[in-house]
Design a protein around this nucleic acid. Structure first.
Lengths: 124, 124
DNA sequence: TTCTATATGATAATGACTATCATTACTATT
DNA sequence: AATAGTAATGATAGTCATTATCATATAGAA
């Protein structure tokens, strides 16, 4: 049984403070800055445990994982290729078409990852 | 100026032989089996060069990149979480909605990555 | 208090990928 | 044919995100 230990609670609280998309190393650094250092291996294990319990979500961006609150409504991401800004969006038509595509291909859908890349307003 | 050297041509030919989604190490191994060993660093550099020239495309799946022919029509991927099968699909409505979502958020779209996860027909 | 199970931290290890550098290959020029 | 310049190559060291290992600490049940 996966425990929600104090360390994990602290990680979860930090993630739940905002809509930020956290990298593991970023979390470890921020916790250290707040006088709550947690070993990087413990952060990784904690993130895995929290995700397994459905308390946070993650998505892969290039070669590293980003973590965010699971309590947000389902959404996908827009990423600016200039400044790295991540914005969220939700689009029911896309969701419906994804379900349709899965069915048409004989797949029983379990999830998806959609990232749209572009240049944001500020970087244009 | 990026050259299309013999090594790179061999890599390109292998990728163009099929619709397969190749990992770098897989390419190196297959070339070695065909008595055409290419150093892994050379494979990586070759893949980067071929992609820069628009001759192949890639997408990131978990912690590693997959490479495929660029001559395919644009498509996205369905991946079976049981057996790992990758299938391709194209859906104009999703493409259109992505453009709309980008515009609505003030983004000038440059690309996207969409992966739908599920369980395929065979693994149900 | 004791015992058991799990978490933790530090660090070594892993694996995908890249940098370095001596050497080789390619191509243009003479 | 020889030479020069440029880039590619291969081997391997290095980088970095992540995980495995192991000694120790902690939590909770009995």
């Amino acid at each position: 049984m996966i425990k929600l230990t104090q360390h994990r609670q602290v990680i979860l609280d930090l993630i739940n403070e905002s809509n930020h998309h956290w990298e593991a190393e970023e979390l470890a650094r921020t916790l250290a800055e707040r006088d709550h250092p947690i070993g990087i291996a413990t952060v990784y294990r904690g993130l895995a445990a929290l995700e397994a319990q459905g308390l946070i979500s993650s998505f892969q961006l290039a070669d590293r994982k980003r973590y965010e609150r699971a309590s947000k409504a389902h959404h996908d991401h827009l990423i600016c290729t200039e400044c790295g800004t991540i914005e969220e969006f939700s689009n029911d038509r896309i969701e419906q078409q994804q379900d349709l595509v899965a069915k048409e291909n004989g797949f029983s859908i379990t999830g998806h990852q959609l990232v749209i890349f572009g240049v944001c307003r500020k970087c244009s």
